[in-house]
């Protein structure tokens, strides 16, 4: 039984990691023919080409810019929203939460086309065209529910008297919020912000419909997959993957120090 379960674990993880291993291995392929399955020796050449590809670097810059903006704006807006929603009456709360859940429940493609309709409509009236601005708006929109849902449980866990205790000791409501409530829900805010950032970096479907001619990294990759993907993309994703692993290790170290494993809110959906 024990051996059987080990074999099972091994097979599933083989399935999960085989393609990633292939990607990483082929990022070091010396091949000049761009063949995706012929190994012709070890080299770093795709890594050096990567840093000279202006289109790709632009896409990377756009992606980072959008992710940072979307993460910050959705965190600020979402934190305020969570506090407001938490204080709402049961019925109002239910309505607001149902609408909030809509972008998470709806297929991405439907969210994407609905926002595309809005942006093209607005562009026709106000002038301008789809691009960085519409991308940022779209990303904030789909990040918001995740931020709100990672903060709400923290508010629920908080002793409801804390806010009152601070006022009782002489804080006005605003300073009571900053001195007592904010530190309490801070882990939720950080989780929400990290989720927003990673969701934004990874998003293809919604960006695809709201980007106009602007390229983000996933869109750039998509346009390449329709022809042939240059191994420099393998190189780039290897680098990104490495960064993510380092970040996760750091977060995990911090969490195990706190002894409070913060479950990703998506598991609670």
């Amino acid at each position: 039984m024990k051996a059987l379960s080990r074999v099972y674990l091994f097979l599933i993880f083989l399935f999960l990691y085989a393609p990633i291993a292939v990607l990483i291995v082929f990022s070091f392929n010396a091949s000049t023919t761009m063949s995706r399955s012929v190994w012709s020796g070890f080299s770093f050449r795709w890594y050096s080409i990567l840093f000279q590809d202006q289109m790709l670097l632009d896409a990377l810059r756009n992606t980072m810019l959008i992710a940072a903006t979307a993460a910050i704006v959705s965190t600020v807006l979402g934190t305020a929203a969570a506090i407001g929603i938490f204080g709402m009456k049961k019925w109002t709360k239910r309505v607001v939460m149902n609408v909030t859940n809509l972008p998470m429940v709806n297929p991405d493609i439907v969210t994407g086309v609905s926002l595309m309709l809005l942006f093209t409509f607005a562009a026709r009236i106000l002038g301008g065209s789809l691009g960085m601005f519409s991308l940022v708006l779209a990303h904030i929109t789909f990040c918001l529910p995740y931020v709100i849902l990672s903060i709400l449980p923290k508010l629920g866990q908080m002793n409801p008297n804390l806010f009152e205790a601070a006022q009782d000791l002489g804080c006005n409501p605003l300073s009571a919020f900053f001195r007592v409530v904010l530190p309490e829900i801070f882990p939720g805010i950080v989780t929400g912000m990290i989720m927003a950032f990673t969701l934004s970096i990874d998003d293809f479907v919604i960006s695809y419909f709201t980007s106009g001619t602007t390229q983000t990294l996933p869109i750039f990759i998509y346009s390449m997959t329709r022809k042939r993907v240059s191994p420099e993309i393998n190189a780039l994703s290897t680098l990104l993957f490495g960064t993510i692993i380092v970040l996760l290790l750091l977060i995990n170290l911090r969490n195990s120090k706190d002894k409070k494993p913060s479950r990703a809110p998506q598991m609670e959906v």
Binding site: L77, A81, G84, G87, V96, V99, S114, L118
Partner: peptide, 26 residues
């Protein structure tokens, strides 16, 4: 409580970027 007003900007956002686009699809 005044806390409810904190969600006002979000409610506006929600109306513009969730409800209006869904209505446009319809």
């Amino acid at each position: 409580m005044k806390a409810k007003s904190a969600s006002f900007p979000y409610l506006v956002w929600m109306a513009v970027f969730i409800i209006v686009p869904t209505a446009l699809v319809v």
